[in-house]
Amino acid sequence: MIDRPSGSVIIRRTASLLVSLVQLFALYVLFFGQYGPGGGFVAGVMIAASLVFGLLVFGEDSATSQRATRLLAADGVGLLLFVAVGGLCLIGGGEFLNYSEAPIPGLDSAARRYLGILMTQIGVAMDVAVAAVSIVFSLSRSVATEETDA
């Protein structure tokens, strides 16, 4: 399904507008998650959805879709970021993921926890985005190779 671009000019034109708009909104949801609805998980899924939309419309060989392919190299980085924040709290002398003990000078406890929440949310967003895009790739590529085998 993702091996060839869509033929309709309406779909391609709409997609080229929507993909970047959805990514912008995903960033808004990620960084505004502490004030409004949303957060890391939704932002990650939205980034993945915009990349998958680009894959479905432009095909996997297009320049737009190369971003999705490159994203796969970041598999596990989000989870590492999450755990690294927890480890930082251990270094600061607190419990695992107790942000208020993170050794960041010049911040009070509440600001440290605010920063900790933000960093872990970025980690969750990266993890979810990579996982969703990689599932789409594994779902669609297995058949492409089967067809060449036949």
Partner: peptide, 20 residues
């Protein structure tokens, strides 16, 4: 946590091990 959205602060701070 300076986080007005309680859902986010529960998910990412008070109950962060579940989220991990």
């Amino acid at each position: 946590t300076r986080t007005p959205n309680v859902v986010t602060s529960v998910l990412m701070d008070y109950r962060v091990l579940d989220t991990l």
